[in-house]
Computed example of a mutant assay.
Amino acid sequence: MKLTDILAESSIVADLRANNKTEALEVLVDAMIKSNPGIEKHTILKVLLDREELGSTGIGDGIAIPHGKVPDLPQIISGFGLSKTGIDFDSLDGKPAYLFFLLVAPENSVGTHLKMLARISRMLKNTDFRNKLLHANSQKEIYQIISEEDAKY
């Protein structure tokens, strides 16, 4: 499974503006829900915030990968956000996050969930890929950059 199989262009926020972690997650979930009607915002947001309480998904280097498992979700879905100014996400390195890959999976999809997290992590190890995302200006451009990188794996 490729990331572009679960990431709709309309689930991308090209100019993520938020003052804190909770606001950032709300904006990302709102965008993801537009592409996946019928999904309950409150449930997904609660799962993501509960996961953040266990430990931040801000992994450092300006990257956050908020994720969680939701009961009764029909399929794994994803979203992406780019913050030009950075958002305090309680990252491991103490620095703001700029790139946000959101991943929400059905409760019973442990294998797929872990494989997608690993795929995203592998892609983000590529400095050129991260820099292209940081300098992107639109949903379409971000989706194209992700699609090109996704095709390599």
Rank of each mutant, 00 (worst) to 15 (best):
T127P: 00
I77K: 07
L117V: 08
K34S: 13
D61W: 10
Y98L: 02
V13C: 13
Q144P: 00
H135I: 02
N20R: 08
S35N: 02
H135D: 14
G86W: 12
A97S: 15
I33P: 01
L117Y: 03
L114N: 10
E149H: 02
K152L: 14
A24P: 06
D150L: 11
G58H: 10
K140Y: 00
A8F: 10
L134N: 14
I87E: 12
T127Y: 04
D88C: 04
I6S: 04
I63M: 15
V13L: 09
R51F: 09
L92W: 05
E141H: 08
K84C: 06
S78K: 04
I39S: 00
A136N: 06
F89R: 11
M1K: 12
S91W: 07
A18F: 06
G94K: 14
A118L: 05
A118P: 00
L48D: 11
D61P: 00
L7Q: 03
K115M: 14
G38R: 08
D72C: 04
G68D: 08
S91Q: 10
G58E: 06
T112F: 04
L28I: 00
Q144L: 11
T43I: 15
I39Q: 04
I63P: 14
E52M: 10
V13Q: 10
G60E: 14
G62I: 10
F100S: 06
S147C: 04
L28S: 02
I33R: 03
